[in-house]
């Protein structure tokens, strides 16, 4: 008797209820995707079993899931931070590429730096690159020229082309035969790995970013001003809050987070700049931030989930011979069910 009562109380707890609800929605998305797989002649149970075995079934698989989470948390922050004042940053992908571009420039041109100098240096450059790229859109928005949604989207394509230009052209490593890639990073510029796995220093950066984000939003005057602005820009402006300054600043910081993700990928995972740097990490970050409405714990949970899904995409390509892009369907379905749930939200623009 007491046991069931206790259980009911746990179930009624807000967080737990949210987790259960989200689990139900995720199950629905999985079921629909299973039907899609079935239509295309795949066995969905085998597919899901394969994905499960390769991600959660071994400590190596699990650590790889965590490795994939690092850029996702950072690109989710890139979206969540500007979204505090209702800026919609869809440019995480481009900001990630530019961050990687800047970090690569720093790493391959200053090879003599010792690691204790090199690592902060490429972190700074990655942040700066992503931040500046996002600031262009922030500037256009602050000036009232163009919506940041569409400008960040278009700039993704420009950023990817810019990286291709450098690695196919001036930065191409002469020793890499025909592969379009930059010279390899010097050892000092490789983010050290943790726990004897591929999990790298970027994980700590991502955690620090999350904590700082949470702290600033809930415990400081800036957070309060931003929340006020998010609710009513006009009222905030009349109370002496400079909207334009916040637009520029938050776009810069957001872009910087994506830039750090790019720096982490190029330094710790690839070791040199390649055009295939990201399988849409920026877009996945957008999705994560959106379905969690920017809650820090939610970002971690959703990044974990999306990380498994993307790993699943690679597995499906290898074992079931269906294109890796097909996993986008599952991601879209997750987003669909979450979006369909939030009905009639006030002031929903």
């Amino acid at each position: 008797m007491d046991k069931t009562k206790g259980l009911m109380e746990i179930l009624r707890h807000k967080r737990v209820a949210a987790v259960i609800r989200f689990g139900g929605l995720f199950g629905l998305a999985l079921a629909v995707f299973a039907m899609v797989l079935l239509v295309f002649g795949q066995n969905p149970f085998r597919a899901y079993a394969d994905i499960f075995r390769a991600t959660l079934g071994s400590s190596h698989g699990f650590s790889e899931v965590l490795v994939k989470m690092i850029p996702l948390v950072l690109t989710a922050l890139a979206v969540a931070i500007p979204s505090r004042i209702w800026l919609i940053n869809v440019g995480g992908e481009g900001q990630l590429f530019i961050g990687a571009l800047f970090a690569t420039w720093g790493a391959v041109n200053f090879t003599h730096l010792p690691a204790w100098l090199m690592l902060p240096w490429i972190c700074f450059l990655g942040f700066l690159g992503g931040g500046l790229w996002a600031s262009i859109s922030g500037f256009m928005r602050a000036k009232g020229w163009a919506s940041e949604t569409i400008s960040t989207l278009l700039m993704n394509y420009v950023a990817i082309l810019l990286v291709s230009f450098f690695v196919f052209g001036p930065w191409k490593d002469p020793e890499s035969a025909n592969y379009p890639q930059s010279a390899p990073f010097p050892d000092a510029a490789i983010l050290p790995s943790l726990l004897d796995s591929r999990i790298h220093l970027g994980a700590l950066i991502a955690i620090a970013g999350l904590l700082l984000f949470y702290f600033v939003m809930t415990r400081t005057r800036w957070g309060l001003e931003m929340r006020a602005m998010g609710i009513n820009q006009e009222a905030a402006r009349r109370n002496g809050v400079s909207t334009n300054r916040y637009i520029l600043l938050l776009m810069f910081i957001g872009g910087g987070m994506a830039g750090l993700a790019g720096m982490g990928e190029v330094s710790a995972i690839h070791g040199q700049l390649r055009p295939s740097l990201s399988p849409g990490l920026g877009y996945m970050g957008f999705l994560i931030s959106w379905i969690t409405m920017g809650s820090p714990l939610g970002i971690v949970a959703a990044a974990f989930l999306i990380s498994i899904i993307t790993a699943g995409g690679d597995i499906l390509q290898m074992t079931h011979r269906i294109p890796a892009a097909a996993i986008h369907i599952l991601m879209a379905l997750v987003l669909f069910v979450v979006l369909a749930r939030s009905t009639g939200k006030k002031g929903g623009k």
């Binding site: 919609i88 097909a326 986008h328 879209a332 379905l333 987003l335 979006l339 939030s342 009905t343």
Partner: peptide
């Protein structure tokens, strides 16, 4: 469902890419 148009649009784009 009165969901956000920008987010739904992007989700639709993803779905189209995958499908």
């Amino acid at each position: 469902r009165r969901a956000n148009q920008l987010a739904c649009g992007l989700a639709l784009m993803f779905c189209g890419v995958g499908l």
